[in-house]
């Protein structure tokens, strides 16, 4: 007689399934990619804007647009994860374009209290999904708390990271967070309203490279 819970649960599972196990085929004839000819970057921008994210298309000068966002939103302190490209932050600390912001690098790691007292965070993404307007952040984009505790999240999305559909998302080292718009809830009368515990403002900078 099995005595521990693990053996007992497994014994029950095997008894329930029985001796005959018929093969179950999984039909994979659902769409595995966005339809041919889809402009995935344009679709991504449209879909993420549907969630009431602040979407900005950027040609090549990412740093100039970051400075504009910082000024528009009145951001005074900005958390920066390890490995974030320095050239996207050009001029932020030097007061260029009349912007004065304190960059708080997550090295050594910022405490949760520090993050709570930081206006915003800026990250890249490992991938972005056009059909669903989703940002995919993995271990390489920084600790998860960085994009959670500050009230504003700025995310730089390079066009070459945008895929069409969910099954096209590449393997990303865990922990992984998918973000589709700002924090929201549908708990009151099933109407979606933005802004609960996660960042209430999501700014997405889509870098088209033109």
């Amino acid at each position: 007689m099995p005595v521990n819970a693990r053996d007992e649960v497994l014994r029950r599972v095997r008894a329930a399934i029985g001796p005959r196990r018929e093969h179950v085929d999984v039909p994979r004839d659902y769409r595995r990619a966005a339809p041919d000819g889809t402009d995935v970057v344009a679709l991504f921008a449209e879909r993420v804007a549907d969630y009431r994210a602040d979407v900005r298309l950027v040609g090549w000068d990412v740093a100039a647009e970051v400075r504009r966002v910082v000024r528009d939103l009145g951001i005074r302190s900005l958390a920066v994860p390890v490995g974030f490209p320095a050239d996207y932050l050009t001029g932020l600390e030097d007061g260029l374009d009349g912007v004065g912001v304190e960059l708080r690098r997550d090295d050594p790691p910022l405490s949760t209290a520090d993050l709570d007292a930081t206006d915003a965070v800026i990250t890249e993404c490992a991938a972005a999904i056009a059909e669903t307007g989703t940002l995919v952040l993995g271990a390489a984009q920084g600790r998860r708390a960085l994009t959670l505790v500050p009230d504003r999240h700025l995310c730089v999305v390079r066009a070459d990271r945008v895929v069409g559909a969910v099954p096209e998302v590449p393997e990303v080292p865990m922990p992984v967070t998918w973000i589709s718009g700002p924090s929201a809830t549908s708990d009151i009368e099933l109407h979606r309203v933005e802004g609960v515990h996660g960042p209430r403002t999501l700014v997405v900078l889509v870098v088209t490279g033109s």
């Binding site: 669903t132 307007g133 922990p175 998918w178 973000i179 718009g181 996660g198």
Partner: peptide, 14 residues
């Protein structure tokens, strides 16, 4: 569930 293309947050950890 909520009639959305995707929910705001999905967490994956190992």
């Amino acid at each position: 569930a909520t009639g959305e293309r995707m929910n705001p947050y999905t967490s994956f950890w190992r």
